[in-house]
């Protein structure tokens, strides 16, 4: 049995999802020889710390009733710096302008030789190369499957399963909120504003939907793919981005009459990273509806491989995180 001491930094939907999955899958993990012992959990207000293992079910209850994980006045960064452990699970919120607290958290983790598994897109979309280099210098593992496509495996699919292939391009739907709004606009012949309101009511879109509907979220995910798969040194400012806010229901009807659906498609290949609404033939593998994500990977040997899955959700994202954790220590 291998014991891995871990911290969970950031305890919003994803961090809580990770805690739930660790509780639920404790036995499965032990069956494959892994004992993931969470020695610290930190959110923006405080931390829970126990070198013998934090009781995750208690922390989950405390977070839901009191709004914080614990009374220890330690920041995530202090936890990473001062508490001895091997693995940092970094699930703080994405900040695309500065990288947020995630960026110093990850840098500190690597400087202390710790491995990082993250769902936080901001630092990777801004400073991928720097992070990857520091991780390498310190002999740390750095895994981030959860940053792109939620539960839909894409980075590890390409790096592991499709190893040996040259990747020609990746294109797909990388934002579930936009996919939902476009799908519903087409179904109901309704305006963008109406369907945005519906998705906000359902919790699919945020109160401030800019990040999703202007294509920024999809652009960040593409940048992560561009840097990690295509070895580019791009930031999201290099992406040619058009969102979905100007799309009219009439245009969707015209597309439909001609055998197309309209989807917000992200595309990355050598020298090109762009996000914008595109016509996709009905019945094409990329024409998935609802909040689903999808990606087609074009390779030289395997041809085209298409995957689809849930792009968001706390448990779905936690699935990608757990898979990264297992792949490091198994």
């Amino acid at each position: 049995m291998k014991t891995i001491r871990a911290s969970i930094i950031g305890f919003g939907a994803v961090g809580q999802g990770v805690a739930e999955v660790l509780l639920q899958k404790d036995e499965n993990l032990k069956n494959i020889g892994l004992d993931i012992k969470v020695v610290a959990v930190a959110d923006s207000k405080g931390a829970a710390i126990d070198p013998n293992g934090v009781d995750l079910s208690k922390v989950l209850i405390k977070k839901r009733t009191e709004g914080t994980v614990g009374s220890e006045k330690l920041t995530g960064l202090e936890v990473i710096t001062n508490i001895d452990h091997e693995l940092v699970i970094e699930t703080t919120p994405t900040d695309i302008d500065t990288g947020g607290v995630g960026l110093p958290n990850m840098l500190a983790a690597f400087e202390h030789g710790r491995d990082v598994v993250t769902s936080n897109k901001g630092p990777l979309a801004l400073k991928y190369r720097e992070l990857a280099e520091i991780a390498k210098e310190n002999g740390s593992n750095f895994k981030f499957e959860a940053t792109v496509g939620g539960a839909m495996p894409i980075i590890n699919l390409i790096r592991d399963v499709l190893a040996g292939n040259d990747i020609i391009s990746i294109e797909g739907i990388l934002n579930g909120t936009c996919n939902y709004i476009l799908t519903r606009m087409m179904e109901e012949q309704a305006s963008y504003e109406q369907m945005l309101a519906e998705s906000q009511e359902l919790g699919i879109a945020e109160t401030d939907p800019t990040y999703d509907v202007e294509g920024i979220d999809a652009a960040c995910k593409l940048v992560i793919l561009a840097n990690s798969i295509f070895d580019m040194d791009a930031t999201y400012k290099n992406v040619d981005v058009t969102g979905i806010t100007k799309i009219t229901p009439e245009s969707l009807m015209l597309a439909q009459d001609d055998g197309f659906v309209v989807k917000l498609i992200g595309e990355v290949k050598k020298d090109l990273i762009r996000v914008g609404p595109r016509l996709v033939p009905v019945g094409h593998p990329l024409a998935v509806g609802g909040t689903l994500n999808v990606a087609s990977v074009q390779t030289d040997l395997a041809g085209t491989v298409t995957i689809t899955g849930r792009g968001a959700g706390s448990i779905e994202t936690a699935s990608a995180i757990i898979s990264d954790v297992i792949s490091i220590y198994r």
Binding site: T242, H284, Q298
Partner: peptide, 12 residues
């Protein structure tokens, strides 16, 4: 004007 062009379906 916003332009919505088709995806490149050649490689599929």
């Amino acid at each position: 004007l916003l332009v919505i062009e088709p995806i490149d379906t050649e490689l599929m």
